[in-house]
Design a binder for these strands. Structure first.
Lengths: 253, 253
DNA sequence: TGTCTAGCTGTAAGATTCGACAGCTGCAAA
DNA sequence: TTTGCAGCTGTCGAATCTTACAGCTAGACA
């Protein structure tokens, strides 16, 4: 067997298509491009959702989709977001999962009967066979891209569509967060190295006096740096500064 | 065109193989399985790395690989981890990237010449054409799975291998974090709803008095809950409690 | 030369948090 | 019925943090 020659089979998603996807600068064009891409994979329906933190503990969702309007309406009116097994699955996993598998196994203590009900109802709206791809990174708590076909016999795992669905999901996630972060990017003055150091030690539970001794500066100076960090971050105290800096990824490295 | 029938092409990575990958319970068996899978995709070499936080601000890396030993040794001795363009790329992206693209574009202010040097050296060790897949989620700061072939003509993006490499990467990431978290899972007593609420408000910068008023309890009680939370988390103060709870994902939802 | 920035330091009053003292209710499992 | 847990409340002294006031050095830049 020659894996290399064998793998010359062309994908459904070519570089041109993925490139156009990344170039989208509005929600509408992105939705259109994703629609085209999912069709190529043989899916009629799709949805992308991501939970973006607005404060360290509160988040708001960003959703674009090519689902039937009636199903989306019914879903939202029934408050299914919290009970949705695909959403709960995406929270704690990174590998994709077929809806069939999610319906049988109950994840995270979510009622399995309730899960089955949602899938049964989805089926009656034309979402018979589905695949959900968890998404993480780029500052979101977690995201999900789900694909659905009305044909219960749609081959997913048995074909390269399985993998290509995951690839497409990562592209949508990247493109979407570029769109989201464009407007939402608060202009936070970058922290100085000293401010970062002090914040790191504060996050490790050190007091001002302890930080001073670690960094070999006076306690007053650590207070000074932490105060400046608070002002730059626009927060009230060290707790919030630590929280915000962590969520923004300012303390890594 | 019938996308469904068209997609019946069998993938290199079948469900059996991926299932065996997830069932691995040691680093050695996982390494073996990944080796088999990458070979099927036509790659001779691969490496998986993840940065796992041990404290809110410090992290340690977990690496398994099928790279030539000499290259790994040279890489580590030269301290390339910090300068590695693939690593720096993975930090802030979710879509895969070819090494060719990383060599030309400089990311995150990393010296492009230095990047080219690393890729040139890698080539001399048999890593001619490569693909890096960023990985996020499952409690790690970020991870990366890189594939490399000695054949500079290896087709990646032009074939379904591109997508399957991403799929495999997610499976390796999931399997690896199962292994990592098995031993490292500190037994932290779950926080009570009240403790979570108090911690959330603390993370929003609220003082004990303010939290008391929001929750309509006495200030003493917020102190009580936050103290209990600190004990359960094994930390010294609220700053650290907020930080630890955040990285453990205890304040979501 | 003057201005800007990062870094550093001091004092002091007032607000907040920490830690240890002690004790209440309501509910559910053993 | 006892035991245990979650939630709730009080006081007090010591430690810590916040926020004013004020002023220093060294290097970069126009």
């Amino acid at each position: 067997m020659s894996p290399v020659r064998d793998s010359m089979r062309k994908p459904h998603l070519d570089a041109d298509l993925l490139g156009r996807l990344m170039a989208c600068d509005t929600i509408e064009t992105l939705t259109d491009q994703v629609q085209i891409a999912t069709r190529r994979l043989g899916f009629e329906h799709w949805i992308y959702g991501a939970l973006m933190p607005v404060t360290p503990t509160r988040a708001e969702e960003f959703v674009i989709n090519g689902y039937p309007d009636e199903w989306r309406r019914h879903y939202l009116e029934s408050g299914y977001t919290m009970a949705d097994p695909t959403v709960n699955y995406a929270r704690g996993h990174v590998i994709p999962s077929l809806w069939d598998d999610l319906a049988t196994r109950s994840h995270r203590g979510v009622n399995s009967d309730h899960a089955k009900l949602i899938f049964t109802e989805a089926r009656s709206f034309g979402l018979a066979k589905g695949l959900s791809v968890p998404l993480h990174g780029l500052g979101c708590l977690f995201g999900i891209m789900s694909y659905a076909a009305s044909d219960p016999k749609h081959p997913i795992v048995e074909s390269t569509v399985h993998a290509e669905a995951v690839l497409l999901a990562t592209y949508v996630h990247q493109a979407a967060s570029l769109l989201i972060n464009r407007g939402a990017s608060e202009k936070i003055k970058p922290l100085t190295p000293r401010e970062r150091e002090c914040l790191k030690w504060a996050a490790e539970g050190k007091s001002g006096w302890e930080i001073a001794h670690v960094l070999k500066i006076s306690e007053r100076t650590t207070v000074f740096h932490l105060m400046n960090a608070c002002q730059k971050l626009g927060v009230m105290n060290r707790q919030q500064a630590v929280a915000k800096a962590l969520v923004l990824g300012l303390l890594e490295n």
